[in-house]
Nucleic acid binder design. Structure first.
Lengths: 161, 161
DNA sequence: GTCAGTGCAAACTTTTTGCAACTAC
DNA sequence: GTAGTTGCAAAAAGTTTGCACTGAC
């Protein structure tokens, strides 16, 4: 299952590197494998650490930036610039790019919403070739809602004191 | 028309500053006015320059960062971290936050799509209070499409030479 | 053998922070 | 008068770049 995805994305990378006369370095393939081995959001440093620990394959930050930029160009990776930290995500075969973000604690959750996906995919944009999309729904998660309620209550209390 | 919007957002700011015991500084009101006077996307430096030139009201970058963060918190301003430059946008009364972004030239265009807006607003997220959303549709604009076609043609040509 | 790719460090850009001066309350 | 806010500069964080070296072709 997961191996099949890795095979597919490896083939895409193969093809791209051949066509554009770029080199097939072990770095590129190992980084791609690491990204697709565990999905979800990750930071550049998390990926760097994972490569060193799990794959015994240390790479420099510069190479990671280069490689991630390349992967973004061929749409194998998506970058999310969230408040504070920039996170990356495996992109291929993952049409679900709806996220809910809590503006209090910063927690990011994927939303599975076929309705949204189908509406966005169905709209026609004139003079524009759609490649993908990204939806961020901002709000407050239930945990933070109760925290806020408590905080406001105590604020009001101290005001009247 | 535009004045009415400025009145509304000023009232929101007033209320927020009062309730949270923050100070009503001329900086905050002038910056808010400048943001809402001309809508559209702008960078922090563009806003800084506009305040100095048009409003004869120079402020420091630090103050702009502080103030924009405050405005984002009360949802009067939206921040877009695009590739390269971070842009801000007046938020209030502008329910249209669908953007199409050309990944070649970086051009950002607003999309007016009531279907998308209504679907996103109608979905229910459990344990989450929705406040707003932001949709980015990535792709290639027609101008860049023709440029790419030309480029690929010449690449293929040079390869077979 | 050649040149793209890598690692390292330095440079650069963007954003945050510490501190003195200021001012809204 | 007090404490939140501003401006400046320094620091921190995030990303890119220059250069020598390595390795894919």
């Amino acid at each position: 299952m997961k191996e099949a995805v890795i095979k597919s994305v490896t083939r895409i990378l193969d093809n791209y590197l051949e066509v554009t006369h770029h080199r097939k370095t072990p770095e590129r393939y190992t980084i791609l494998r690491a990204i697709y081995a565990n999905k979800g959001h990750f930071t550049l440093d998390e990926l760097k650490e994972q490569l060193a620990e799990k794959y015994d394959f240390p790479v420099s930050r510069a190479t990671l930036y280069n490689t991630l930029n390349l992967f973004m160009e061929i749409r194998l990776v998506m970058r999310h610039r969230l408040q504070g930290s920039t996170k990356y995500e495996a992109y291929y075969g993952n049409s679900n790019h709806c996220h809910q973000i809590c503006t209090e604690c910063g927690k990011v959750t994927e939303i599975a919403s076929p309705e949204i996906v189908s509406v966005i995919e169905s709209i026609h944009l004139k003079r524009f070739r759609k490649d993908g999309f990204n939806l961020y729904v901002y709000g407050v998660c239930s945990t933070c809602q109760s925290k806020l309620t408590r905080k406001r209550r105590s604020e009001r209390k101290s005001k009247t004191e």
